[in-house]
């Protein structure tokens, strides 16, 4: 299950032990490619809150986190950013990035 965030709900949603945020945007082909991979991981991996936010509209969040590429995945532990990665990826690569959040 993926939760759609807004600037208003963002801080509340990332305030959990493990959270990943997919920062996507309008007319973004790479974001469309990442979507099914992200959905699959969200369905498969309990214990992590999978979030998405449309930064074409939520500019505050894009500015706050210095996001200038789409998609950008942000990884949080207890509300603090611990890792990020830009671009689309396959499931294997997404697992690799999630591992950084879980085990580093």
């Amino acid at each position: 299950m993926i939760t759609e965030a807004t600037a208003q709900t963002f801080d509340r949603l990332i305030d959990t032990e493990y959270a990943v945020v997919d920062c996507y945007g309008d007319f973004c082909g790479a974001c469309v490619m990442l979507e099914p991979v992200y959905k699959e991981a969200a369905a498969d991996m309990a214990g992590i809150r999978f979030i998405e936010i449309n930064i074409s509209h939520e500019w505050d969040i894009a500015e706050r986190f210095g996001i200038d590429a789409m998609p950008t995945l942000l990884f949080f532990r207890n509300g603090r950013e611990v890792h990020r990665i830009e671009g689309s990826m396959d499931r294997e690569e997404l697992n690799r990035q999630i591992a950084v959040m879980l085990y580093n």
């Binding site: 991996m45 697992n95 085990y103």
Partner: peptide, 11 residues
């Protein structure tokens, strides 16, 4: 968190 069968790198 451990995900048996997913071969998460390092786990």
């Amino acid at each position: 968190l451990v995900y048996p069968g997913r071969s998460i790198p390092g786990a």
